[in-house]
Design a protein around this nucleic acid. Structure first.
Length: 220
DNA sequence: CAGTCGATTCACT
DNA sequence: GTGAATCGACTGA
């Protein structure tokens, strides 16, 4: 066997498909993060699909805003958002332009460049935890808001690309409800991961925020 | 214009 | 298992 992995970045046509097709198809592929410091390569093991304005779990559910504008743009671009006052999360825009859909990259195995990620992930007890969770993944790959809107199909040296690689094996892909998504978006099994992979993050149900006690609201 | 809370993580009990 | 950290976007008035 002498098959070399296809190092070609995924073309825009890959992302210009229904997000529920694209999301599981990203599993097993290699995400390449290029910075001045060097390159980090990560094998994607867990993703979630967010299906535009019809999806109560999506940032696009209530229409276009300054934050989510990139989601409404062409596929193959990077959507980064800032959350909980301290973390970033990384998405790839999917579907035809205007569908406002995207895939949240939740976890992966760093296959190259781990020495660049470790200093940013001091709390990780082992390399499996470097990118085990969406904000951890973003931290490991040095993702910031400056990447929001970047074209992931711009070529092999773009700040972020996904390599074509080898097609993932569908028999190892599982699907289940999305992490931390509640309400009407909760029942959709739009989280996809590679069965048994040690870098997949643990599932957590949606946790409704605690109501503040000083609120005027009559208590039960 | 002020209040609320998030596609989370980490430290602690 | 529970709660704190931390801030800007979004919401409704």
């Amino acid at each position: 066997m002498n098959e070399s992995p296809d190092r070609t970045p995924l073309p825009r046509s890959f992302f210009d498909r229904p997000v529920l097709e694209v999301a599981p198809d990203l599993l097993g592929r290699t995400l390449v993060r290029t910075t001045e410091e060097g390159r980090i390569e990560l094998r994607l093991t867990e993703v979630e699909a967010y299906a535009g304005e019809i999806d109560p779990g999506s940032h696009a559910f209530r229409g276009r805003t300054a934050r989510n504008a990139v989601m409404f743009g062409p596929p193959g671009h990077v959507y980064v958002y800032f959350t909980y006052g301290m973390w970033h999360c990384l998405n790839l825009v999917c579907g035809p332009e205007g569908s406002a859909s995207g895939v949240l990259l939740r976890a992966g195995e760093i296959v190259s460049g781990a020495e660049q990620a470790r200093p940013r992930r001091r709390s990780a007890r082992n390399d499996n935890e470097l990118a085990k969770g969406p904000a951890r993944l973003a931290t490991a790959l040095d993702i910031a808001l400056t990447l929001n809107g970047e074209d992931a199909c711009a070529g092999p040296d773009a700040p972020l690309t996904v390599l074509t690689g080898t097609p993932p094996t569908p028999d190892r892909v599982l699907a289940g409800p999305r992490t931390g998504v509640g309400g009407d978006g909760a029942p959709h099994p739009w989280r996809f991961w590679i069965d048994g992979d040690p870098t997949v993050s643990p599932y957590r149900a949606h946790t409704p925020r605690k109501r503040r006690l000083d609120s005027r609201r009559p208590g039960a």
